[in-house]
Simulated scan of single mutants.
Amino acid sequence: MEFLTILLSALLGIISPAGFVLDRVAETAIRNQLDSAEELSVRIDNTPSYQALRGRVDRVRIAGRGLFPVAGVRVAELEVETDAIALDLDQLRQGQPELEQPLQAAVKFVLTEADLNQALQSELVAEQLRRLNVSLSGTSAASELIDPQLDFLPNDRLRLQATLQDPQTGEQTRVVAETGLEMIAGHQLQLLEPTIKVNEQIVAPQLLAFLIGNVSQRFDLTNLEESGITARVLNLEIEADRLTLVSFVRIEPGTELNW
């Protein structure tokens, strides 16, 4: 979600009451918010064109390949299409873009298996994994994930292999987890027929239920709604070497974005 707000905030930031919004200007503004981009194009539809002087555009379409929101994390493909965007003109004149009406967008991400495995080695993802507080004992004591490896499997399933290291004793345990993925009501991630092996031994059902509940709770998009963002996953599909996710996002006026 942080990546999406980077894109949308960059879009709002280039709507200027002093001049027209140009596709090239928008593309440059978005590139400046990313670590790097292999291919990126932006198309802005506006009729009449002087609407930009009033802080309004009809529609924005973004298409990109090989986008790096941060170093080491690559998005293979991205497509974004927004509804009309309207900003508060007084706030815009002060250089503080603020939505006057909700911003809605359809978003399509494609992530490859190779790119996800590279991302697992990045510091950003490593920090997110540490926040999961993975514990083999079912207690609050967290273990560190070392050398995680992700594999895509048929039937929308994936396998994650990693070593868990106890931060206090240094003891290491090999873990292999396999599961299917499904979004419930478009907002909550559900793990389908999950299995976990610890040092080749199948995890007890009670511990498995605890771990599944922890993951599902953390990956619930309704958690974003208090901050003014509504997000729903419309389609989630795993193929031989890529994961495709199509979603809808709505951002309410007054939502804090990182300008």
Score class of each variant (00 low, 15 high):
residue 38 E to M: 08
residue 239 E to G: 08
residue 141 A to D: 10
residue 194 P to S: 07
residue 223 N to Y: 07
residue 246 V to H: 07
residue 211 L to W: 03
residue 230 T to W: 08
residue 1 M to I: 14
residue 55 G to I: 03
residue 227 S to M: 14
residue 202 I to R: 08
residue 132 L to P: 03
residue 11 L to I: 15
residue 243 L to Y: 06
residue 23 D to Y: 00
residue 223 N to S: 14
residue 194 P to I: 05
residue 192 L to V: 15
residue 116 L to E: 13
residue 203 V to Y: 00
residue 7 L to N: 00
residue 129 L to V: 11
residue 110 V to T: 09
residue 88 D to P: 04
residue 61 R to A: 14
residue 192 L to D: 02
residue 10 A to Y: 04
residue 88 D to R: 06
residue 160 L to A: 09
residue 238 I to L: 08
residue 109 F to P: 01
residue 23 D to L: 02
residue 101 Q to F: 00
residue 178 E to P: 10
residue 127 E to P: 01
residue 256 E to G: 05
residue 86 A to N: 09
residue 125 V to T: 02
residue 40 L to I: 10
residue 114 A to T: 15
residue 100 E to L: 13
residue 142 A to S: 03
residue 191 L to P: 03
residue 205 P to R: 01
residue 241 D to W: 06
residue 170 G to D: 03
residue 97 P to R: 02
residue 252 E to F: 06
residue 249 V to N: 04
residue 96 Q to G: 07
residue 195 T to F: 00
residue 168 Q to C: 01
residue 234 L to W: 02
residue 118 Q to P: 10
residue 123 E to T: 09
residue 101 Q to R: 15
residue 171 E to S: 02
residue 245 L to Q: 05
residue 79 E to P: 01
residue 126 A to N: 11
residue 152 F to T: 10
residue 97 P to K: 10
residue 18 A to F: 14
residue 58 D to C: 08
residue 256 E to T: 15
residue 64 G to H: 10
residue 17 P to W: 03
residue 17 P to F: 07
residue 137 S to A: 04
residue 67 L to W: 11
residue 153 L to F: 07
residue 10 A to Q: 05
residue 138 G to C: 01
residue 171 E to W: 07
residue 237 E to W: 08
residue 147 D to G: 03
residue 67 L to R: 08
residue 1 M to T: 08
residue 204 A to N: 12
residue 40 L to K: 05
residue 109 F to G: 00
residue 238 I to M: 09
residue 52 A to I: 04
residue 133 N to K: 14
residue 8 L to P: 06
residue 77 E to M: 08
residue 201 Q to P: 01
residue 151 D to A: 11
residue 239 E to S: 10
residue 55 G to Y: 00
residue 96 Q to L: 13
residue 152 F to E: 14
residue 226 E to P: 03
residue 157 R to Y: 05
residue 173 T to F: 04
residue 180 G to H: 13
residue 68 F to P: 00
residue 76 A to E: 06
residue 164 L to V: 12
residue 112 T to R: 01
residue 166 D to N: 10
residue 34 L to N: 02
residue 67 L to H: 07
residue 236 L to D: 00
residue 12 L to V: 12
residue 235 N to G: 06
residue 135 S to K: 10
residue 224 L to Y: 05
residue 170 G to S: 07
residue 127 E to A: 11
residue 165 Q to S: 06
residue 7 L to Y: 12
residue 146 I to Q: 06
residue 48 P to N: 13
residue 255 T to F: 12
residue 231 A to C: 12
residue 47 T to P: 00
residue 60 V to W: 01
residue 186 G to Q: 12
residue 171 E to Q: 13
residue 23 D to K: 04
residue 110 V to I: 12
residue 159 R to P: 06
residue 133 N to P: 05
residue 29 A to C: 10
residue 34 L to K: 08
residue 69 P to L: 08
